[in-house]
């Protein structure tokens, strides 16, 4: 009986596969084109993280030489890394894309949501996202979520239905056979679409390397003042003050995921290139969210609960 878990042996190490990457790229482009062909007002949810930057790159390829035929939506928590906002603005200008910003700060000021005591604005993003969808009457939202990220995401369809409250019902998802996506909705309803469903973190990095995609510098090793909180390295920041008893120190770190500054932690790293990051991921023993996300640690089903309410 497996009474305890054996941790002494390393995980199996996979090799790069050029054809595999090409097939994932082809699938994502197919999904983007399908949904644009069938949806009235699609948009891309753009956080400025690596997955959404890969999505933007794929969207540009899918419709070239035409412009990307939908706007980008950014839910701005007001706790962003400045590097992320700078790259967001640079990319939208280069691609001549339209940018819609849903502001969490404005939503707090207007009373739609209340600032949580924890200072983590992750949870209150959802009402702002839903309000932005409603205001712009968006019918389909592309996101960069991947099934390998988290166990609730592992359950989600590529084209995922949301009712008129923006809710996901994991117990009655539409069957999704072959690559025949059912994107039909009634007024008020919408779909979330995940063209990167079948990509892993490693695939994303192989693709970033192959395509030489620019990312916020935060994804590569740099020096930063951090505090160690529950084993996670949080950058000291105006929205993340040092708590009594904590001792900030300078460490060489990089971000594996980038969300809000208040809920995303860095990892110790010396990787300054995509190739070095790939080497690091090949030997890591933690998943990207497990290593870096305070928002997933709230409970065992934190992601499922947020998704049900309309989160990505």
């Amino acid at each position: 009986m497996p009474t305890s878990v054996d941790r002494d042996t390393p995980r199996a190490i996979p090799a790069v596969d050029v054809e595999h990457l090409a097939a994932l790229e082809a699938e994502a482009i197919f999904i983007l084109r399908e949904v644009v062909a069938e949806s009235e007002r699609p948009a891309l949810l753009f956080s400025g993280g690596k997955d959404s930057i890969v999505m933007l790159h794929l969207a540009q390829k899918a419709f070239a030489p035409a412009r990307i035929p939908f706007p980008l939506v950014h839910v701005d928590t007001g706790h962003n890394f400045t590097e992320v906002l700078e790259l967001r603005d640079k990319l939208t200008a280069e691609l001549e894309a339209q940018l819609i910003v849903g502001s969490v700060q404005e939503a707090i000021d207007s009373g739609l949501v209340a600032e949580p005591d924890s200072g983590m604005r992750n949870a209150i993003q959802t009402p702002v996202l839903l309000q932005t969808i409603e205001r712009h009457r968006l019918t389909a939202l592309f996101g960069g979520a991947r099934r390998d990220e988290e166990k609730a995401r592992a359950k989600e369809r590529v084209v995922s239905f949301r009712d008129d409250f923006g809710q996901w019902n994991p117990k009655s998802q539409r069957p999704e056979l072959w690559s025949l996506y059912n994107s039909r909705i009634r007024p008020g309803e919408s779909i979330r679409v995940f063209p990167l469903s079948n990509w892993t973190e490693l695939d994303i990095w192989h693709y970033i390397q192959r395509e030489d995609i620019e990312l916020p510098a935060l994804y590569y090793a740099h020096e930063r003042s951090v505090v160690n909180r529950d084993g996670m390295l949080f950058a000291v920041h105006e929205h993340l003050p040092v708590r009594p008893g904590e001792e900030p120190y300078i460490a060489q770190v990089r971000y594996r995921t980038i969300g809000d500054t208040s809920c995303t932690a860095a990892v110790g790293s010396g990787a300054t290139t995509a190739a070095a990051v790939i080497q690091e991921i090949l030997t890591t023993r933690l998943t990207e969210r497990g290593a870096t996300r305070g928002d997933d640690r709230v409970s065992d089903s934190a992601m499922e609960d947020r998704k049900r309410e309309g989160y990505f």
Binding site: H20, D148, K151, A154, K155
Partner: peptide, 28 residues
Amino acid sequence: LTDGLRAEREQGITIDVAYRYFSTPRRK
């Protein structure tokens, strides 16, 4: 590992498909 939904864990059953990705040195 694959029964990731709360209802699945409560009932000890699988309700919907879970996708998992793994590789060995020979294959993905």
